[in-house]
Design a protein around this nucleic acid. Structure first.
Length: 402
DNA sequence: TAGGCCATCTGGTCCT
DNA sequence: AGGACCAGATGGCCTA
C-alpha cells in the first residue's frame, strides 16, 4: 500500500514504497486525526473498488445461477433436482484440469447425443497428453430427466419387490405356530420361528413319536426374543385350550363349553405383549374379562366367533401347525371354496381339569431353566386328522393315531 | 428420550 | 441397457 504524496514535493526519505515528505510530517504533527481519517477513507474506497470490480461479478453470477436453478425446480423433486443442478454447477465451477475438460463441457452443451462416448476420458487423466473428447459428461437437462426417470422406475420396482417380500413374510406368519393380524411378529422373529418350526417338524418326523412338550416348546422358541417366546408360548397354550373343546356339527367349529366364547380351533390369534389383555409379570391372559393364565389374547373375527372365511385376508393353510402337545393343531385358516371340505377334526379326550388354562411359565423360571412343566400339560390322547388331501401329512398322522 | 422396527430411497453389483 | 438384488442411510412411528 503506497501513501500518496502531494505533487511537487521532495521526499525526505524513502521507506520501501512509501515516501515521507515534509508536509506529511507537518500534517502528522498538526493534524494526526485528519490524516487518519483520510487514510481510512482511502482504504475504504480501495476496498469498495475491489469489491465492485472483482467480488461483485462473482456474487452476481452466483445469484444468477441460484435463480436459474430454482426456476427449474418443481414441487416434489425439488431437492433432488437442486442437487443435480449443483452437480452441474460444480462441473462448471471446478478448475479445469486442461483444455479437454473445457472442450468436453462445451461438447456436452450440444445435446444428449454424446452419451455413446461418455465415460471414456477417465483413463486419460495421467500425465499423458490429454485427448480430446469428453472426460466427464455434463448433466444436461435431458440427461437429468432421464436419470430421474430411471431412478423413479427403480424406486418403484424396489418398492414392489419389498412389498412382495413382505407379502411372503405375511404368509409365513400365518403358518408358523403363532399369528396375529394386529400384532405381527417382526420379520426377524418370523424367520426364526419358522426355522425352529421346521426343525421341530423334522424332529417329529425323524423320531416318529410325539415330542416332549417342553422340548417342543424349547425348540420352537430357540433364539427368539423374550417377548416372542412369551407370545409363542401364549399362543401354544391357548391352542392347547382348544383341545378341550368339542367339535360342532359342521366339524369346523369348536366350542368351549365353559367359556364365554366359542372359538374355531384354528382361528386363534395372538397379540403381542403390549396387548391390554396381557398382564405383565403374571403372564396371565385376560380374555374378555376372564383370566386364562399366561399367554396372549385370542383374537376373534369381528362380530363373531368364527373366522370369516370370505375375508380376503383369510387364506388357506399352507401346512397344519403342530400343537403344543405334538398334535396337528391349530389354525385352520381357511380355505378357498375348493378347500371347504378341508378341515381338521380333533378330539381331545381323557382330560379333566378345573383350571381354565395351564400355566407354562417362560423366561428364567420357565422350561429353559430346566424346570419341568410337562405335568401342567394335559396328556395327549387322541388327535385325528381328516384331510382329503392329507397325503403329505400321512406320516404325521400315523403316529398321531398310534 | 432411546431403542426397535419399518418403509423408502439410493447407489453399487451382478446377470441376462 | 435394464432388471434383480443387496446393503447403507434416513426418517417416521411406536413403546418402554
Amino acid at each position: 500500500m503506497a501513501s500518496p504524496s502531494p505533487p511537487g514535493e521532495a521526499s525526505l526519505c524513502e521507506c520501501g514504497r512509501m515516501s515521507i515528505t515534509g508536509s506529511h510530517v507537518m500534517a502528522l504533527a498538526n493534524d494526526v486525526p485528519a490524516i487518519w481519517a483520510w487514510h481510512q477513507s482511502w482504504l475504504l474506497a480501495t476496498m469498495l473498488s475491489r469489491l465492485f470490480s472483482e467480488v461483485l461479478p462473482d456474487v452476481q453470477r452466483l445469484a444468477a445461477d441460484w435463480a436459474e436453478d430454482n426456476e427449474d425446480e418443481d414441487g416434489k423433486n425439488k431437492d433432488e433436482e437442486h442437487d443435480l443442478c449443483e452437480l452441474e454447477d460444480d462441473d462448471l465451477d471446478e478448475p479445469l484440469e486442461g483444455s479437454s475438460r473445457a472442450e468436453s463441457e462445451m461438447a456436452g452443451d450440444d445435446d444428449e447425443d454424446d452419451e455413446a462416448e461418455e465415460e471414456e476420458g477417465d483413463e486419460n487423466s495421467g500425465d499423458k497428453p490429454k485427448k480430446r473428447g469428453p472426460k466427464k459428461r455434463k448433466m444436461t437437462a435431458a440427461r437429468m430427466q432421464r436419470s430421474k426417470m430411471r431412478r423413479t422406475k427403480a424406486n418403484t420396482r424396489e418398492r414392489t419387490r419389498m412389498h412382495d417380500l413382505n407379502s411372503a413374510l405375511d404368509n409365513l406368519r400365518k403358518v408358523v405356530p403363532c399369528y396375529s393380524k394386529t400384532q405381527k411378529l417382526s420379520k426377524i422373529e418370523t424367520l426364526r420361528l419358522a426355522k425352529n418350526y421346521i426343525m421341530a417338524l423334522g424332529e417329529i418326523l425323524r423320531n416318529g413319536k410325539r415330542p416332549d412338550v417342553v422340548a417342543y416348546v424349547q425348540m420352537l422358541c430357540k433364539g427368539l426374543s423374550q417377548p416372542t417366546t412369551n407370545l409363542v408360548a401364549g399362543c401354544l397354550q391357548l391352542n392347547t385350550r382348544n383341545f378341550l373343546t368339542e367339535p360342532c356339527s359342521d366339524g369346523a367349529r369348536f366350542h368351549v363349553p365353559s367359556s364365554p366364547f366359542s372359538v374355531h380351533p384354528y382361528s386363534y390369534r395372538c397379540s403381542r405383549i403390549s396387548s391390554p389383555h396381557y398382564q405383565p409379570g403374571t403372564g396371565a391372559l385376560n380374555v374378555r374379562g376372564q383370566s386364562y393364565g399366561s399367554g396372549y389374547e385370542a383374537v376373534y373375527p369381528p362380530g363373531g366367533t368364527s373366522p370369516d372365511y370370505n375375508s380376503p385376508d383369510y387364506e388357506a393353510p399352507h401346512s397344519p401347525p403342530v400343537c403344543l402337545n405334538g398334535g396337528l393343531s391349530g389354525r385352520q385358516q381357511a380355505p378357498s371354496e375348493a378347500d371347504r371340505n378341508y378341515h381338521y377334526s380333533m378330539h381331545y379326550s381323557g382330560l379333566t381339569t378345573s383350571r381354565p388354562s395351564h400355566s407354562i411359565p417362560f423366561g428364567p423360571s420357565g422350561p429353559r431353566s430346566g424346570g419341568s412343566h410337562s405335568e401342567n400339560i394335559p396328556p395327549f390322547h387322541d388327535v385325528h386328522l381328516h384331510h382329503d388331501r392329507a397325503a403329505p401329512y400321512e406320516d404325521l398322522n400315523a403316529f398321531f393315531h398310534n
